[in-house]
Amino acid sequence: MKIPKPRKRGETYTITVSYQNKRYYCTRDTAKECEQWAALKLLELKSQTRIESGELKPKFIFRDLNTKYYQDVGQLNPSKSSRDWIKGQYKTFEMKFGALAQKSIYDITPKDLTNWRNKRSSEVSANTVLKEISHYSAMFTYAQKELFLLDDNPWMQITKPKKPKARDRRIHPSEIELILKVLDYEMGTIPVLSQHYVAWGFLFAIETAMRKGELVAMQKNDIHDGHVHIPKSKNGEARNVPLSEEAKALLELIKHDGRKIIPQSENAFRLMWEKRKAAIGLNDLHFHDTRHEAITRMVRVRKLPVEILAKITGHKKIDVLVNTYYNPNADDLVEAFNR
Protein backbone atom coordinates (compact mmCIF):
# COMPACT_ATOMS: atom_id res chain seq x y z
CA MET A 1 0.00 0.00 0.00
CA LYS A 2 1.80 3.11 -1.29
CA ILE A 3 1.40 6.24 0.82
CA PRO A 4 1.42 9.55 -1.11
CA LYS A 5 3.92 12.22 -0.17
CA PRO A 6 2.70 15.13 2.00
CA ARG A 7 3.01 18.69 0.67
CA LYS A 8 4.07 21.63 2.79
CA ARG A 9 1.77 24.64 2.75
CA GLY A 10 2.85 27.48 4.96
CA GLU A 11 3.27 26.20 8.52
CA THR A 12 1.32 22.94 7.93
CA TYR A 13 1.35 19.87 5.71
CA THR A 14 -1.43 18.50 3.54
CA ILE A 15 -1.92 15.07 2.01
CA THR A 16 -4.37 13.58 -0.50
CA VAL A 17 -5.33 9.92 -0.87
CA SER A 18 -7.31 8.51 -3.78
CA TYR A 19 -9.52 5.44 -3.50
CA GLN A 20 -12.03 4.17 -6.03
CA ASN A 21 -12.06 7.48 -7.94
CA LYS A 22 -12.63 9.55 -4.79
CA ARG A 23 -10.18 11.86 -3.07
CA TYR A 24 -9.76 12.45 0.65
CA TYR A 25 -7.80 15.34 2.15
CA CYS A 26 -6.12 16.01 5.46
CA THR A 27 -4.06 18.83 6.99
CA ARG A 28 -1.67 18.24 9.89
CA ASP A 29 1.21 20.00 11.62
CA THR A 30 3.88 17.55 10.46
CA ALA A 31 4.53 15.34 7.44
CA LYS A 32 4.67 12.25 9.66
CA GLU A 33 1.17 12.96 11.04
CA CYS A 34 -0.10 13.26 7.47
CA GLU A 35 1.42 9.91 6.52
CA GLN A 36 -0.09 8.23 9.59
CA TRP A 37 -3.51 9.64 8.75
CA ALA A 38 -3.22 8.49 5.12
CA ALA A 39 -2.26 4.93 6.12
CA LEU A 40 -5.19 4.62 8.55
CA LYS A 41 -7.61 6.18 6.06
CA LEU A 42 -6.69 3.71 3.31
CA LEU A 43 -7.05 0.80 5.73
CA GLU A 44 -10.46 2.09 6.82
CA LEU A 45 -11.66 2.53 3.22
CA LYS A 46 -10.48 -0.92 2.18
CA SER A 47 -12.06 -2.53 5.26
CA GLN A 48 -15.35 -0.77 4.53
CA THR A 49 -15.29 -2.10 0.97
CA ARG A 50 -14.73 -5.63 2.25
CA ILE A 51 -17.56 -5.21 4.76
CA GLU A 52 -19.96 -3.97 2.08
CA SER A 53 -19.02 -6.85 -0.22
CA GLY A 54 -19.59 -9.35 2.60
CA GLU A 55 -15.96 -10.44 2.59
CA LEU A 56 -15.34 -8.94 6.04
CA LYS A 57 -17.66 -8.60 9.03
CA PRO A 58 -17.86 -5.25 10.87
CA LYS A 59 -16.62 -5.06 14.45
CA PHE A 60 -19.62 -5.49 16.73
CA ILE A 61 -19.03 -7.00 20.15
CA PHE A 62 -21.63 -8.72 22.34
CA ARG A 63 -21.55 -5.86 24.85
CA ASP A 64 -22.46 -3.35 22.12
CA LEU A 65 -25.41 -5.49 21.06
CA ASN A 66 -26.59 -5.64 24.68
CA THR A 67 -26.53 -1.82 24.86
CA LYS A 68 -28.29 -1.31 21.54
CA TYR A 69 -31.00 -3.86 22.35
CA TYR A 70 -31.65 -2.17 25.68
CA GLN A 71 -31.88 1.28 24.07
CA ASP A 72 -33.96 0.25 21.05
CA VAL A 73 -36.19 -2.44 22.57
CA GLY A 74 -35.92 -2.59 26.36
CA GLN A 75 -36.57 1.07 27.13
CA LEU A 76 -39.56 1.16 24.75
CA ASN A 77 -41.28 -1.95 26.10
CA PRO A 78 -44.89 -1.06 26.96
CA SER A 79 -44.86 -3.22 30.11
CA LYS A 80 -43.16 -1.64 33.12
CA SER A 81 -42.37 -5.02 34.67
CA SER A 82 -40.75 -6.16 31.39
CA ARG A 83 -38.82 -2.87 31.13
CA ASP A 84 -37.53 -3.30 34.65
CA TRP A 85 -36.52 -6.91 34.02
CA ILE A 86 -34.68 -6.05 30.78
CA LYS A 87 -32.96 -3.19 32.58
CA GLY A 88 -31.79 -5.62 35.25
CA GLN A 89 -30.38 -7.92 32.56
CA TYR A 90 -28.65 -4.97 30.91
CA LYS A 91 -26.97 -3.85 34.13
CA THR A 92 -25.75 -7.32 35.15
CA PHE A 93 -24.69 -8.34 31.62
CA GLU A 94 -20.90 -8.11 31.96
CA MET A 95 -20.96 -9.77 35.37
CA LYS A 96 -22.78 -12.76 33.84
CA PHE A 97 -20.76 -13.09 30.64
CA GLY A 98 -17.23 -11.97 31.61
CA ALA A 99 -14.80 -12.25 28.69
CA LEU A 100 -17.59 -13.42 26.36
CA ALA A 101 -19.09 -9.93 26.59
CA GLN A 102 -16.04 -8.58 24.72
CA LYS A 103 -16.27 -11.14 21.91
CA SER A 104 -17.55 -10.21 18.44
CA ILE A 105 -21.09 -11.43 17.84
CA TYR A 106 -19.79 -12.99 14.60
CA ASP A 107 -17.35 -15.15 16.53
CA ILE A 108 -19.72 -16.39 19.25
CA THR A 109 -20.39 -20.09 18.72
CA PRO A 110 -22.97 -22.55 20.11
CA LYS A 111 -20.09 -24.07 22.08
CA ASP A 112 -19.43 -20.69 23.78
CA LEU A 113 -23.10 -20.45 24.72
CA THR A 114 -23.29 -24.06 25.90
CA ASN A 115 -20.34 -23.43 28.23
CA TRP A 116 -22.07 -20.29 29.50
CA ARG A 117 -25.32 -22.23 30.02
CA ASN A 118 -23.53 -24.90 32.06
CA LYS A 119 -21.82 -22.33 34.27
CA ARG A 120 -25.01 -20.33 34.75
CA SER A 121 -26.96 -23.49 35.62
CA SER A 122 -24.63 -24.04 38.56
CA GLU A 123 -25.47 -20.55 39.89
CA VAL A 124 -29.23 -20.12 39.45
CA SER A 125 -32.38 -22.19 38.93
CA ALA A 126 -33.34 -23.79 35.63
CA ASN A 127 -36.27 -21.38 35.30
CA THR A 128 -33.91 -18.40 35.55
CA VAL A 129 -31.52 -19.89 32.97
CA LEU A 130 -34.43 -20.53 30.59
CA LYS A 131 -35.67 -16.97 30.97
CA GLU A 132 -32.19 -15.54 30.39
CA ILE A 133 -31.59 -17.74 27.32
CA SER A 134 -34.91 -16.50 25.92
CA HIS A 135 -33.84 -12.89 26.50
CA TYR A 136 -30.40 -13.19 24.89
CA SER A 137 -31.79 -15.24 22.03
CA ALA A 138 -34.28 -12.43 21.35
CA MET A 139 -31.31 -10.04 21.33
CA PHE A 140 -29.56 -12.05 18.60
CA THR A 141 -32.81 -12.40 16.64
CA TYR A 142 -33.06 -8.60 16.75
CA ALA A 143 -29.51 -8.36 15.37
CA GLN A 144 -30.46 -10.85 12.67
CA LYS A 145 -33.88 -9.59 11.54
CA GLU A 146 -33.84 -5.89 12.38
CA LEU A 147 -30.18 -4.84 12.23
CA PHE A 148 -29.23 -7.35 9.49
CA LEU A 149 -25.92 -8.08 11.19
CA LEU A 150 -26.21 -11.85 11.48
CA ASP A 151 -27.29 -14.70 9.24
CA ASP A 152 -27.98 -17.15 12.08
CA ASN A 153 -28.80 -17.09 15.79
CA PRO A 154 -26.36 -19.34 17.72
CA TRP A 155 -28.72 -19.41 20.73
CA MET A 156 -31.13 -21.47 18.62
CA GLN A 157 -28.49 -24.18 18.26
CA ILE A 158 -28.01 -25.00 21.94
CA THR A 159 -29.98 -27.37 24.16
CA LYS A 160 -32.09 -25.61 26.75
CA PRO A 161 -32.30 -26.84 30.36
CA LYS A 162 -35.30 -29.02 31.08
CA LYS A 163 -38.17 -26.95 32.41
CA PRO A 164 -38.77 -27.91 36.05
CA LYS A 165 -42.15 -29.11 37.23
CA ALA A 166 -44.52 -26.25 37.91
CA ARG A 167 -45.17 -25.35 41.55
CA ASP A 168 -48.36 -26.81 42.96
CA ARG A 169 -48.05 -25.31 46.43
CA ARG A 170 -51.33 -24.92 48.27
CA ILE A 171 -51.74 -22.89 51.46
CA HIS A 172 -53.06 -24.76 54.50
CA PRO A 173 -55.42 -22.96 56.93
CA SER A 174 -52.85 -23.45 59.71
CA GLU A 175 -50.28 -21.58 57.59
CA ILE A 176 -52.71 -18.69 57.13
CA GLU A 177 -53.04 -18.51 60.92
CA LEU A 178 -49.24 -18.50 61.32
CA ILE A 179 -48.82 -15.71 58.74
CA LEU A 180 -51.47 -13.54 60.42
CA LYS A 181 -49.92 -14.16 63.83
CA VAL A 182 -46.37 -13.25 62.80
CA LEU A 183 -47.71 -10.10 61.12
CA ASP A 184 -49.61 -9.26 64.31
CA TYR A 185 -52.93 -9.02 62.48
CA GLU A 186 -56.32 -10.30 63.56
CA MET A 187 -58.80 -11.12 60.83
CA GLY A 188 -61.62 -8.56 60.61
CA THR A 189 -59.67 -5.67 62.17
CA ILE A 190 -58.70 -2.40 60.51
CA PRO A 191 -55.08 -2.51 59.28
CA VAL A 192 -52.92 0.24 60.75
CA LEU A 193 -49.26 -0.79 60.70
CA SER A 194 -47.19 -1.80 57.67
CA GLN A 195 -47.27 -5.47 58.63
CA HIS A 196 -51.06 -5.30 58.94
CA TYR A 197 -51.34 -4.27 55.28
CA VAL A 198 -49.11 -7.19 54.26
CA ALA A 199 -51.44 -9.56 56.14
CA TRP A 200 -54.48 -7.83 54.59
CA GLY A 201 -52.94 -8.15 51.12
CA PHE A 202 -52.24 -11.85 51.74
CA LEU A 203 -55.90 -12.48 52.59
CA PHE A 204 -57.16 -10.34 49.69
CA ALA A 205 -54.92 -12.20 47.23
CA ILE A 206 -56.36 -15.54 48.35
CA GLU A 207 -59.85 -14.20 47.60
CA THR A 208 -59.09 -12.57 44.23
CA ALA A 209 -56.04 -14.35 42.68
CA MET A 210 -54.48 -10.91 42.12
CA ARG A 211 -50.71 -10.68 41.75
CA LYS A 212 -48.61 -8.92 44.37
CA GLY A 213 -47.76 -6.05 42.01
CA GLU A 214 -51.44 -5.59 41.15
CA LEU A 215 -52.39 -5.54 44.83
CA VAL A 216 -49.80 -2.92 45.78
CA ALA A 217 -50.70 -0.75 42.76
CA MET A 218 -54.46 -0.97 43.43
CA GLN A 219 -56.10 2.41 44.02
CA LYS A 220 -59.40 3.33 45.61
CA ASN A 221 -60.82 4.53 42.29
CA ASP A 222 -60.18 1.03 40.88
CA ILE A 223 -62.82 -0.37 43.24
CA HIS A 224 -66.28 -0.63 41.67
CA ASP A 225 -69.55 -2.20 42.66
CA GLY A 226 -68.77 -5.89 42.69
CA HIS A 227 -65.35 -5.85 41.06
CA VAL A 228 -61.82 -4.42 40.99
CA HIS A 229 -60.64 -2.92 37.70
CA ILE A 230 -56.98 -3.60 36.96
CA PRO A 231 -56.00 -1.00 34.32
CA LYS A 232 -52.82 -2.80 33.31
CA SER A 233 -51.83 -6.33 34.25
CA LYS A 234 -48.71 -8.40 33.59
CA ASN A 235 -49.76 -9.21 30.02
CA GLY A 236 -50.22 -5.50 29.27
CA GLU A 237 -54.03 -5.62 29.21
CA ALA A 238 -56.75 -4.45 31.59
CA ARG A 239 -59.09 -6.87 33.34
CA ASN A 240 -61.89 -6.93 35.89
CA VAL A 241 -61.76 -9.13 38.99
CA PRO A 242 -65.09 -10.02 40.67
CA LEU A 243 -65.23 -9.54 44.42
CA SER A 244 -66.46 -12.26 46.75
CA GLU A 245 -68.32 -11.29 49.90
CA GLU A 246 -65.08 -11.97 51.83
CA ALA A 247 -63.14 -9.65 49.53
CA LYS A 248 -65.75 -6.90 49.92
CA ALA A 249 -65.54 -7.26 53.69
CA LEU A 250 -61.77 -6.85 53.53
CA LEU A 251 -62.12 -3.65 51.45
CA GLU A 252 -64.52 -2.21 54.04
CA LEU A 253 -61.67 -2.42 56.57
CA ILE A 254 -59.61 0.15 54.62
CA LYS A 255 -60.20 3.45 56.40
CA HIS A 256 -57.18 5.64 55.56
CA ASP A 257 -57.44 8.72 53.31
CA GLY A 258 -54.64 7.78 50.91
CA ARG A 259 -55.01 7.09 47.20
CA LYS A 260 -53.66 3.53 47.24
CA ILE A 261 -55.41 0.71 49.07
CA ILE A 262 -52.08 -0.58 50.43
CA PRO A 263 -50.09 2.55 51.37
CA GLN A 264 -46.56 1.23 50.81
CA SER A 265 -44.18 0.42 47.97
CA GLU A 266 -43.96 -3.02 46.38
CA ASN A 267 -40.38 -3.39 47.63
CA ALA A 268 -41.33 -2.53 51.24
CA PHE A 269 -44.24 -4.98 51.02
CA ARG A 270 -41.94 -7.71 49.67
CA LEU A 271 -39.26 -7.19 52.32
CA MET A 272 -41.80 -7.32 55.14
CA TRP A 273 -43.32 -10.51 53.71
CA GLU A 274 -39.93 -12.24 53.25
CA LYS A 275 -38.68 -11.27 56.69
CA ARG A 276 -41.75 -12.34 58.64
CA LYS A 277 -42.40 -15.66 56.83
CA ALA A 278 -38.73 -16.61 57.33
CA ALA A 279 -39.13 -15.91 61.04
CA ILE A 280 -41.69 -18.74 61.32
CA GLY A 281 -39.86 -21.16 59.03
CA LEU A 282 -42.16 -20.85 55.99
CA ASN A 283 -39.33 -20.21 53.53
CA ASP A 284 -40.93 -22.50 50.93
CA LEU A 285 -44.09 -20.37 50.84
CA HIS A 286 -44.11 -17.76 48.07
CA PHE A 287 -46.58 -14.89 47.99
CA HIS A 288 -47.45 -15.99 44.44
CA ASP A 289 -48.75 -19.24 45.94
CA THR A 290 -51.83 -17.25 46.94
CA ARG A 291 -52.67 -17.21 43.22
CA HIS A 292 -52.55 -21.01 43.07
CA GLU A 293 -54.72 -21.23 46.19
CA ALA A 294 -57.24 -18.66 44.96
CA ILE A 295 -57.66 -20.23 41.50
CA THR A 296 -58.09 -23.72 42.93
CA ARG A 297 -60.71 -22.43 45.38
CA MET A 298 -62.58 -20.62 42.59
CA VAL A 299 -62.95 -23.90 40.71
CA ARG A 300 -63.81 -25.96 43.80
CA VAL A 301 -66.20 -23.56 45.52
CA ARG A 302 -67.64 -21.45 42.72
CA LYS A 303 -67.54 -24.11 39.97
CA LEU A 304 -66.23 -21.54 37.47
CA PRO A 305 -65.70 -22.77 33.90
CA VAL A 306 -62.16 -22.35 32.63
CA GLU A 307 -62.98 -19.64 30.05
CA ILE A 308 -64.50 -17.40 32.76
CA LEU A 309 -61.63 -18.17 35.12
CA ALA A 310 -59.11 -17.10 32.46
CA LYS A 311 -60.82 -13.71 32.14
CA ILE A 312 -60.61 -13.21 35.91
CA THR A 313 -56.98 -14.27 36.26
CA GLY A 314 -55.70 -12.68 33.05
CA HIS A 315 -54.31 -15.88 31.52
CA LYS A 316 -54.13 -15.89 27.72
CA LYS A 317 -53.03 -19.51 27.59
CA ILE A 318 -55.60 -21.89 29.02
CA ASP A 319 -53.04 -24.68 29.37
CA VAL A 320 -50.91 -22.53 31.72
CA LEU A 321 -53.97 -21.77 33.83
CA VAL A 322 -55.04 -25.41 34.05
CA ASN A 323 -51.65 -27.10 34.32
CA THR A 324 -49.82 -24.56 36.48
CA TYR A 325 -52.32 -22.71 38.66
CA TYR A 326 -55.17 -25.14 39.18
CA ASN A 327 -53.78 -27.47 41.86
CA PRO A 328 -56.55 -29.74 43.20
CA ASN A 329 -55.72 -32.37 45.80
CA ALA A 330 -57.18 -35.89 45.75
CA ASP A 331 -60.24 -34.88 47.81
CA ASP A 332 -61.01 -32.02 45.39
CA LEU A 333 -60.90 -34.39 42.42
CA VAL A 334 -63.08 -36.98 44.11
CA GLU A 335 -65.64 -34.32 45.05
CA ALA A 336 -65.68 -32.90 41.52
CA PHE A 337 -66.03 -36.41 40.01
CA ASN A 338 -68.97 -37.33 42.25
CA ARG A 339 -70.62 -33.97 41.76
Results as ranks from 00 to 15, higher is better:
93 F>Y: 11
94 E>G: 02
95 M>R: 09
96 K>N: 01
96 K>E: 03
97 F>A: 04
97 F>K: 04
99 A>S: 15
99 A>L: 13
101 A>V: 00
102 Q>A: 13
102 Q>M: 11
102 Q>H: 12
103 K>W: 08
103 K>G: 06
104 S>V: 02
104 S>C: 03
104 S>R: 03
105 I>M: 12
105 I>D: 02
105 I>E: 06
105 I>T: 10
106 Y>K: 07
106 Y>N: 04
107 D>P: 03
107 D>L: 10
110 P>E: 02
110 P>D: 07
110 P>T: 05
110 P>I: 07
110 P>F: 03
111 K>P: 00
112 D>A: 00
113 L>V: 09
113 L>K: 10
113 L>Q: 12
115 N>H: 01
115 N>P: 00
115 N>T: 04
116 W>A: 00
117 R>K: 15
117 R>Q: 06
117 R>W: 07
117 R>S: 02
118 N>Q: 09
118 N>M: 08
118 N>R: 08
119 K>I: 04
120 R>F: 06
120 R>G: 03
121 S>K: 11
122 S>V: 02
122 S>N: 11
122 S>K: 13
123 E>M: 11
123 E>C: 01
123 E>V: 08
123 E>L: 10
123 E>N: 06
124 V>E: 06
124 V>H: 03
124 V>S: 07
125 S>M: 07
126 A>K: 15
127 N>Q: 09
128 T>W: 00
128 T>C: 01
128 T>D: 01
129 V>C: 08
129 V>A: 11
129 V>I: 14
129 V>N: 09
130 L>K: 10
130 L>A: 08
130 L>I: 11
131 K>L: 06
131 K>G: 03
131 K>W: 00
132 E>C: 07
133 I>N: 11
134 S>R: 15
134 S>M: 13
135 H>F: 11
135 H>G: 02
135 H>L: 10
136 Y>V: 14
136 Y>D: 10
137 S>V: 09
137 S>G: 12
137 S>H: 06
138 A>N: 15
138 A>S: 15
138 A>Q: 14
138 A>W: 01
139 M>K: 04
140 F>T: 00
141 T>Y: 11
141 T>V: 14
141 T>D: 15
141 T>K: 15
142 Y>F: 13
142 Y>G: 02
142 Y>D: 02
143 A>I: 14
145 K>N: 15
146 E>F: 02
146 E>Q: 10
146 E>M: 03
148 F>K: 15
148 F>E: 15
148 F>D: 14
149 L>Y: 12
149 L>Q: 08
149 L>E: 04
149 L>G: 05
150 L>A: 12
150 L>P: 12
150 L>G: 12
151 D>H: 11
151 D>Q: 13
152 D>S: 14
153 N>T: 13
153 N>R: 13
153 N>A: 09
154 P>Q: 05
156 M>D: 14
156 M>T: 14
157 Q>H: 11
157 Q>K: 13
157 Q>V: 00
